[in-house]
Design a binder for these strands. Structure first.
Lengths: 236, 236
DNA sequence: CCATAAATTATTCGTGCGTATAACAGTAAG
DNA sequence: CTTACTGTTATACGCACGAATAATTTATGG
């Protein structure tokens, strides 16, 4: 009987690989079905490595959650690129909405992971802190976009008003993202981007079409009603 | 050493007691921290009863989830009483929004439970079905309220339009409910009812105040900013 | 008041878990 | 080529879990 051959990976690579395997397991089997043995099998290593790199299973899971939230918020923010001379605020906001309500962020895996961890907030302050930070970042980013759009349209844009708008739009995005990702089959999820854009226009008191209601993007064909981007594990 | 004395309970009482103990455990310790021993200790009985009444732990948890969703949707619908000669549609919609964004539905325990079970939808069709049914009921109820309000204001109220509005408002409610219940501390959750009412007015194109923006209810004093309805287990 | 059935407890069993430890192997420096 | 280091594997331990079974108590009906 020979010993398993193995590769030595750089510290960060191995850690990342284990965290991603953890997320895959949680998405696939839930937190209760996520065992050290399964995680390490998914990552192609042996259980001992969890202790070596993270000290305990619990610590690994916490790190994996922080890793996930980092991905989600980063991707959401990047979808609307706010450079020095970037696109006008309206288009940034539009892209932000689109980025949150289309693949890959609109995914059953992601919402499943997200919900599972939300359920932990109550019992562990660490999860609460990570969530809180991610939410704050999301909200402040959205608030800035809203302010820009209001200014461009000559609408009142005092701080508290922008914040209220951001809270409402954020709620709208969250709710649509969840139900859309879960895809109960009560409506075609492809209608969500347009629906959110139109709703945001009304919430902000913008004229219809101010955010470019028609179609998914300036260029790119209208999406056929794809079922689910099926074999999408938990990529980078 | 004497044997524990016990009470014989009616079938439904015992089942309900076990389901409530299960929800308490899941809210407090998460699904992974919910064991048969803990559940039955919470209910004041011995582990054998789970097998006796539900066959297995898994079956008990599924029943508890269905029980929870039944409570949530029932309470949400009842908050806006739609009787034969009930209040006008606007006030019903207003009460519906209030009912979802104030205690007891706005609760960290409830959202924690809800999220935990959402995380199971992906791996078990039973959970998916329960969720789907609850969501459908919620959405259709909301759609009817929206239609009533639009009619009263002489606005267009074709079916597809009502549905789109209902989807958006439902998303708004869900999102605000979640973040409000989690109470990240980024804003006072007491602003949510007003915020939601104002946002709904804008979404539907109603004149400001059409849903009675000011104050929480026709009669009843404005709520002081209570922190959390603290020792609130998981009552009926 | 007794007999019968059902509800509940007490105890046991096997399994899979997280973790700890020791042996091994890939890597890099001298 | 050798040596030291550490990433990695292999194995074992103790414990808590879900489930099953047997024993006992409560309630019910004649």
């Amino acid at each position: 009987m020979s010993r398993k051959t193995f590769q030595r990976l750089a510290l960060d690579e191995r850690r990342q690989s284990l965290m991603e395997a953890t997320l895959t397991c949680v998405a696939r089997h839930g937190l209760d079905g996520t065992t050290v043995r399964r995680i390490t099998e998914e990552a192609g290593v042996t259980p001992g490595l969890v202790r070596h790199y993270f000290g305990s299973k619990e610590e690994l899971i916490k790190n994996a959650y922080a890793y996930l939230i980092g991905q989600l918020t980063a991707r959401a923010s990047e979808s609307a690129d706010t450079g020095e001379d970037g696109p006008p605020a309206a288009q940034q906001l539009r892209q932000f909405l689109l980025g949150n309500l289309t693949s890959p962020n609109l995914s059953e895996d992601k919402v499943s992971l997200w919900a599972t961890f939300i359920g932990q907030i109550r019992h562990d302050p660490f999860f609460a802190e990570i969530h809180r930070e991610g939410y704050r970042e999301f909200l402040e980013f959205l608030e800035r976009l809203v302010e820009g759009v209001l200014i461009d349209h000559g609408l009142p844009h005092r701080g508290p008003q922008c914040r209220r708008h951001a809270i409402a739009i954020n709620g709208l995005i969250d709710g649509l993202w969840m139900e859309g990702s879960l895809n109960s089959g009560l409506y075609n999820r492809a209608i969500l981007p347009d629906l959110a854009i139109e709703a945001t226009e009304r919430l902000l008191g913008l004229p219809t079409g101010a955010l470019g209601t028609a179609g998914p993007a300036p260029h790119a064909p209208a999406p056929q009603l794809q079922e689910e981007n099926a074999p999408c594990a938990m990529p980078e």
